[in-house]
């Protein structure tokens, strides 16, 4: 009699029942096995996150001494691009001007509004010449964004920020190397 009561109360003890224990054990083992299969898929899918953007610097083919502090000059170069299993040298352009301190500023011609190519102010001979539009030297053909020679947008422009600039390096021989693009805030300071 007392034996029966003892057993009954043991079975009602709080905590895991046999059935719950088995459910958890089997569920846990199943979840572990499923995650062995699933984890490589997730990692593989997120592989692009760990890849940085383009990082290489390419020789622009021009010396810093070829540029001036008044007007930007157009530079055509080949940007190296690794794209999955493809790699290519893509013809690219940058506008380069020297800042007050003589350091080169290499601007992308891509409008920061929606990505059209902005035009510099060029004469009939194709050479840069002073703007007839006050301080606005670059004009975007698409929605009329205007930028100064340093690529700072006009207050009324749809463009939200100045033209992006390349990271730059100069080698011992004085050649200008162009690196990845960076964004600037409206004061013209690099933010990323």
């Amino acid at each position: 009699m007392s034996d029966f009561h003892e057993r009954a109360s043991r079975e009602q003890q709080p905590g895991l029942s046999r059935r719950q224990f088995l459910t958890y054990a089997l569920g846990g083992t199943g979840a572990f096995m499923a995650s062995l299969v699933a984890v490589p898929f997730v990692v593989e899918t997120f592989d692009p996150i760990r890849r940085g953007g383009a990082n290489a610097f390419v020789n622009s083919g021009h010396k810093v001494s070829e540029f001036n502090k008044t007007l930007p000059q157009l530079v055509e170069f080949r940007a190296h691009r690794d794209d999955g299993w493809n790699s290519a040298d893509i013809p690219s352009r940058a506008w380069v001007i020297l800042q007050e301190d003589g350091s080169p500023l290499a601007m992308s011609p891509i409008c920061t509004h929606l990505g059209c190519q902005v035009n510099g102010t060029l004469g009939p001979d194709g050479k840069p010449e002073p703007s007839q539009d006050g301080q606005w030297w670059f004009h975007c053909p698409c929605h009329g964004s205007k930028y100064t020679v340093y690529g700072i947008q006009s207050p009324g422009s749809p463009a939200p920020r100045p033209l992006d600039v390349h990271k730059v390096k100069v080698d011992e021989a004085g050649y200008l190397y162009l690196g990845p693009l960076q964004q600037r805030n409206s004061a013209g300071q690099v933010i990323s």
Binding site: P40, F41, V43, E44, F46, D47, R50, W85
Partner: peptide, 12 residues
Amino acid sequence: YITDEVLLGNVV
């Protein structure tokens, strides 16, 4: 590229 470059691509 899957085999040599992608993280755990060789596993998949």
